[in-house]
Design a protein around this nucleic acid. Sequence first.
DNA 1: CTGAAAGCGCTAACAA
DNA 2: TTGTTAGCGCTTTCAG
Lengths: 353, 353
Amino acid sequence: MERRATIKDVAEAAGVGVATVSRVLSGGSASPQTRERVLAAAAQLDYRPSALGRNLRQRRTGGMGLLVPDLTDTFHAQLAEGVLAYARSAGEHVVLGSTAGDPEQESELIGMLLEQSVDRLIAVPSGDEETWAPAIRAGMTVVFADRLPARPSSDDDPSTTAVNDLMLLDGLSSAVRPRPLDVPSVLADDRAGIRTAVRYLRGLGHKRIAFLGGPGHDRRVTAFREAVGAPVDEELVVFGTGSRDSAYAAASGLFQSRPDLSAVVAGGNVLGEAAVLAARELDLRVPRDVSLVMYDDVPWAELCSPPLTVIAQPGRDMGYRAAELVLRSGGRRPRGVVLPTELIIRGSCGPHR
Amino acid sequence: MERRATIKDVAEAAGVGVATVSRVLSGGSASPQTRERVLAAAAQLDYRPSALGRNLRQRRTGGMGLLVPDLTDTFHAQLAEGVLAYARSAGEHVVLGSTAGDPEQESELIGMLLEQSVDRLIAVPSGDEETWAPAIRAGMTVVFADRLPARPSSDDDPSTTAVNDLMLLDGLSSAVRPRPLDVPSVLADDRAGIRTAVRYLRGLGHKRIAFLGGPGHDRRVTAFREAVGAPVDEELVVFGTGSRDSAYAAASGLFQSRPDLSAVVAGGNVLGEAAVLAARELDLRVPRDVSLVMYDDVPWAELCSPPLTVIAQPGRDMGYRAAELVLRSGGRRPRGVVLPTELIIRGSCGPHR
DNA sequence: CTGAAAGCGCTAACAA
DNA sequence: TTGTTAGCGCTTTCAG
């Protein structure tokens, strides 16, 4: 690798000082002729400013980090494409990490980004607020996408609720709970999406509607409970851990333990996939025996027979907006964004029989 | 963002010189007690060495770049997951770019990586060898995955074939063609995969087998032609440009213009998707009216009715191996790797009728 | 075994 | 408008 030209080389070639080169190249003021000469010299030497020097000087790497649980989940891929699209238009780079939904890996990746001085980060979080506190404390600009980190359970670690004698108690509550992270986010309107789906199924005559959830689907479950109304049949609310296998296990278990259910709402495309597979395996026909609506619109939803009715969320847009937020938050702390979902009716839901 | 501790802070706290801290932290030699004190001070200050300083000093950013055409193509997502997995295990980071199959964007991204001094790059290339020459010349270690850049067409630019009077002609051929890029690669055994698929279809009695290709599928088309044997019915070999729309158009056009075809081999999962959609739209039943085998095994292949027969290539492994290659090529120029494919027979192929 | 010092390439004061 | 200079945080000779 032959040494690349440095700013010094350009300065010499143009017969000016390095500062002038820097100025010209970053659009500062300079006399037309100086500018001309610098530009010529730079072109001549095929000069490309090194981000290394600049980064060190400015104590920060440009670009942004992007942390998702799993790229083979098409929704995350869509989100990533959105982020990349905005980043490209802004001339910034993206450092990608995939966490497998594991808070520990997430922490490590945050640490890695910190080490690289990447101080902007978009994440589909897996860990809870405790996982994320270090990043915030370190001064990273963080934007959450698709979901928020869980509040740490208040009785998780009793020792933290013990009175610390150096701590100024404001006498409000005995359980001292940190206040929620103040981080902007780009979310889909899960509540509306789920509600619409449940109402749709209700309108079709379904009474026993199940919810198949995964990690990070808390807001969706809550919306589901709310939409079906009390009393909620808790056996009809089941969870996988994020992997395709566990999603399949959850779906299959659900179908087998509650053959009386007539519809299921899958909280994400991996769970929807599992539901279709499990139903087929158990010889349940969709929608004859069971109606299915899946969160996430993905290209293959249309390939199923029948094509899947879905709650579409704009994955790509969400990524795009998140990147926009994380790059343009100039000191301000913009509040998050909630994007609309849409119920796309295809063929996987039928009347209750 | 409160200033992070620097190596200097640690040195002071430990009462040693910065060089000593550097040595201890990178496993150099030091007396046990010195080491102890440095480690203690570092822990105490929560010191994390900044990659910025190190990078500048070593004139290179660690990590690697990864360029793929489109992450929502599940194969690329699998590949990316493989790369990320190896990178994580090696403690390296990954800068991701998506090119949309556009050589120009690819060039820009290469430029961006060069600017960041990322000198290792894994790519599913879209541009031809000319696009890639700059990266190689700049001294990047590149590894191609899934496919190789096309050789530039020799009659592309007639001026390059003119005799340059400063050029030493070795008198071999009049058309001076640059020799192929010497870049290691991780490929699937396309030839075997396609051949197996074609033989399988032949065995089922199919005579008019079509190939639905996309950008970068040259090796697959060649294998296809070879497998079906001369004379090849050229109307049965059609291409999309990479987008889902164009894939659909190609598939639909193929089915409509040649209703006599009885089987199609899709060169990638996006094309397979398009074929399924187009067939359904035209009321062609799979496999009754047309048999389909798709390159790439993706989770949704099993969701189709009937489940798709596929030529599986190990996307994740390919990414993993590529990352391994790009990181461990210590000066050596390892030859590439070819991984086996597997024909997974599901339900989308039937006997010719 | 350890420390002092010289940069890596760049930008931002500060002077001229 | 320009040039000079002082670092950013780190590694790495080179002396001691």
